[in-house]
Nucleic acid binder design. Structure first.
Lengths: 118, 118
DNA sequence: GACACGTTTCAATTAATGTTGAAATATCAT
DNA sequence: ATGATATTTCAACATTAATTGAAACGTGTC
């Protein structure tokens, strides 16, 4: 992954509205949600949601599909995973012991987040 | 983790400069780097770096420590891990099979990124 | 103490982002 | 076709971010 793509993706997650939007779609993967449902669940006007949807679509983190007169949005989970991999790559100059220490410090369960390689 | 904190963290990673800055510190964990070295490695003026350093410091993703007349910056890896955990939480309504499919699709090695729980 | 060096703050400019209501567009139901 | 509904585009405004050079601030060195 290239820097430009990754920073665009983080940009897409950098507003409260868009972050909640994306997490909503992550929770609702793989089915996704139509715009109206998203608008209701986030409690923001559809016009504002549309603005933010454009940003996440541009980043690639979300995809859209026409469904009658609705538009269904879905989180692009594989891209999310690639982005995480990009962020954590070559962590600690590839010394697993240090990474392990950090992971313990974070309190995050190992099954959820083992960025340690091998 | 709260939405506000997480979006501030993604905001910190949303510019090319800051993303490269953070990844540089991740690679150089746990030792960190002093500002001058960062400035040289990123090839940007110290005044501009200082601006971006403030942003990542504010987010908590980077910490700083005085070292004589230098300032040493370090990536906050545990916070990075918590943030990743926040982003991926309740993925696919906790149906591991779907998550596994996505992971295969992403092409990311399982040891690097198993967000699947259990 | 005077000087050099690393780093930050300030001021100025340029550009981009977030929000809202009104209007436009597209699709389905009758 | 007409009307109702879903969603987007547009215009306007307020807010915030990015970049740069000059100046200021600390800290170590001679």
């Amino acid at each position: 992954m290239e820097t430009k793509q990754a920073s665009t993706i983080f940009e897409a997650l950098s507003s409260d509205v868009r972050l909640e939007l994306f997490r909503l779609l992550v929770r609702n993967a793989p089915d996704g949600l139509v715009a109206g449902d998203i608008s209701k669940q986030l409690g923001i006007p559809s016009t504002n949601l549309s603005f933010h949807l454009k940003a996440v679509l541009y980043s690639g983190l979300v995809s859209v599909e026409k469904e009658g007169r609705f538009l269904r949005y879905r989180a692009n989970i594989p891209l999310m995973l690639e982005t995480i991999s990009y962020l954590t790559s070559e962590c600690c100059q590839n010394t697993p012991e240090q990474c392990r220490k950090y992971r313990l410090e974070s309190g995050v369960a190992p099954e959820v987040l083992p960025i340690i390689k091998k």
